[in-house]
Design a binder for these strands. Structure first.
Length: 566
RNA sequence: CGGGGCGUAGCGCAGUCUGGCUAGCGCGCACGGUUCGGGACCGUGAGGUCGGCGGUUCGAAUCCGCCCGCCCCGACCA
């Protein structure tokens, strides 16, 4: 392909709207252009990358035995009513209406459609297991789209769904996908790690996220350097901290704290570190109020709380309930003398030797609280959002926090959707049973951004060969010399015949422009036909990764390129 | 949704506080010429509803009001 025919336009300056490297480089290198917030047009160059990622994903999906289908983006309201997600996913759904008034949703995901399909097509255990996948556009009304295609309103996703007869089969399907994911990310040059994850809006019981470590990632992962435990902070289990030391002998003392409700305000007022506060939050779950104690500088992980309560959603209580439970307005709750409600304490408060807490009276806090002495025996549990330095629940080693980009997510869904949407089959005994499901997503467009986050330098992108828009950039610095132009066209033809995709920079611009664009876009191999060729007949071959330049005979180029791209 | 920032030529910006003549600069683009191994140079030229609407004023890119768009941070933690 000739550059002048390929609609490639690079930008000299960094676009003002882009903050992170991948977003900046995708615009500068001419891979995409913005239409509106969270909406991007893929230009020819960018689309080639997207298609290459897609091809790797498709190959590995096919290898697992999954079957490719293509489902509609527009989906009827009815299906979503049946799964209960018309309401629960309202915040991210974009809806549409036909002229006739029929309500549709632009699919944010496809569990409903695929389960409905299987419900109609599958009736016997003889047809199972089956896995179906598609590569299709998803729509999500993100609260705040950002970072280019990293978080946008419309994006390309590979979503797969497995249907099995029993748990053992479902586990096998899950494993198969998990392993395919490892191959997909490795083949695309991504260093990704699987971490335990929260199931969020998907439901189900087990899940792993595939994270690409990157400073610019939106997710945080807790990693144990010793035993290798790794989990999203939304999920990461935190171990108990052993308390060694002496708890305060001073008596609890009431201090007036007029109008001071937050840890931050109180910490300033009392000149005490937030880590000395025993924050007391009143929650309710299933109508029943209860108290949660946590250290002042930590946050409650509500999904841990809900899991601990056997699945009932825990929500912060309203002001009225707080008054009823504590006898004080919001901001003055404390565990000392709190009666009539269950009290759960996060591990983090166990180590507070001399605590500060609300006095259960308006404008009063208590200092010198010794939890062991001043409260009835507490029930300790892991209720906090994990933080750096927290002990690993498995081995007690201090965990580190790393940032990452979520490029894939696999879930064991169980029968949540198959039950509500009727994906049942007859087993050997003639009993009707719901299929055990799994679902598996990969953010295909996000992967492109993730690859760039992981592979760039100050000059531009450094594409892994498997996903580069073109594997080879051929350029000539003497376009007006017929011999050089002929050699270039000849080499272009031979490389293409050898199965390489090659871009030929035939522009009449200076050497600097060509070299800089080559580095910006980041083609793995660069071939230069210049003065040296006219004198010696040799062309120069260089990779984007290294500074090393080899002068070789044009006849040897195809095999050298093969070696360099391996 | 709350807070902050921004909106002037395709891109990057100056000018706005302190209103004043035909609204500037760099890059890019077109044409001509000289160059030709890391973003060359000279000349000529095209390109603007100064985000939109309304107001104040003799006069508005500039002041005021409303709206729109874009970017960043944060979102019930007592």
């Amino acid at each position: 392909m000739k550059w002048t025919a390929a609609l490639i336009a690079t930008l000299r300056d960094d676009p003002q709207e882009a903050e992170i490297p991948s977003h900046r480089l995708m615009l500068r290198a001419g891979l995409m252009r913005k239409l509106a917030s969270g909406l991007y047009t893929w230009l020819p160059l960018g689309l080639r990358v997207l298609k290459k990622v897609e091809a790797v994903v498709r190959e590995e999906m096919d290898r697992t035995g999954a079957l490719e289908i293509l489902m509609p983006i527009l989906q009827p309201r009815d299906l979503w009513e049946r799964s209960g997600r018309w309401e629960s996913m309202d915040a991210v759904m974009l809806k549409a209406r036909t002229h006739g008034g029929r309500e549709l949703v632009l699919g944010p995901t496809h569990e409903e459609v695929v389960t409905d399909l299987v419900a109609r097509e599958i009736s016997s255990y003889r047809q199972l297991p089956v896995s179906l996948y598609q590569i299709n556009t998803k729509f999500r009304d993100e609260i705040r789209p950002r970072f280019g295609v990293m978080r946008c309103r419309e994006f390309l996703m590979k979503d797969a769904y497995s249907f099995d007869i029993d748990e053992a089969g479902a586990d096998r399907s899950y494993r198969l996908m998990y392993e395919a994911y490892e191959r997909i990310f490795a083949r695309c040059g991504l260093e990704a790690m699987a971490v335990e994850a929260d199931t969020g809006m998907m439901g189900g019981r087990d899940s792993h996220e595939f994270m690409v470590p990157a400073e610019t990632g939106e997710d945080a992962v807790a990693v144990c350097p010793k035993c290798g435990y790794a989990a999203n902070v939304e999920r990461a289990a935190v171990g108990e901290t052993a308390f060694s030391g002496t708890r305060t002998a001073e008596k609890p003392e009431e201090v007036p704290t007029p109008g001071l409700r937050t840890v931050e305000e109180l910490s300033r007022f009392l000149s005490a570190s937030p880590a000395r506060f025993i924050k007391t939050l009143i929650y309710r779950a299933g109508g029943e109020p209860f108290a949660v104690l946590i250290r002042g500088d930590r946050e409650v992980n509500e999904s841990k709380l809900s899991r601990g309560l056997g699945g009932a959603a825990a929500v912060l209580a309203d002001e009225e309930t707080i008054r009823k439970v504590t006898g004080a307005p919001l901001g003055f709750a404390g565990p000392v003398g709190l009666k009539g409600v269950k009290v759960l304490a996060d591990y983090s408060v166990a180590a507070i030797a001399d605590g500060i807490t609300g006095g259960n009276r308006e404008d009063i806090h208590l200092v010198h609280v010794n939890l062991e002495r001043d409260c009835p025996p507490l029930e300790y549990a892991d209720l906090a959002v994990a933080a750096g330095g927290d002990p690993c629940a498995a081995c007690g080693t201090a965990m580190a926090l790393r940032r990452g980009i979520e490029v894939g997510h696999v879930f064991k869904l169980g029968t949540k959707y198959s039950r509500t949407l009727g994906a049942v089959f007859k087993d050997e005994a003639g009993n009707e049973r719901p299929a055990i499901m799994g679902c598996y997503g990969i953010g295909v467009s996000r992967m492109v951004a993730a690859v760039i986050e992981q592979h760039h330098d100050e000059k531009g992108i450094i594409w892994p060969a498997a996903v580069a828009p073109y594997q080879v950039l051929l350029l000539t610095l003497a376009p007006d010399q017929p011999a050089a132009a002929r050699a270039a066209e000849d080499l272009l033809a031979r490389l293409e015949a050898n199965g390489r995709d090659v871009l030929y920079d035939d522009r009449a611009v200076s050497a600097g422009v060509k070299f800089n664009d080559a580095d910006l876009i980041g083609f793995p191999v660069r071939i230069t036909i210049g003065k040296k060729f006219l004198k010696t007949g040799l062309v120069e071959v260089k990779t984007r990764r290294s500074e090393e330049v080899r002068a070789v005979d044009p006849g040897e180029v195809p095999s050298l390129v093969d070696r360099l791209l391996e």
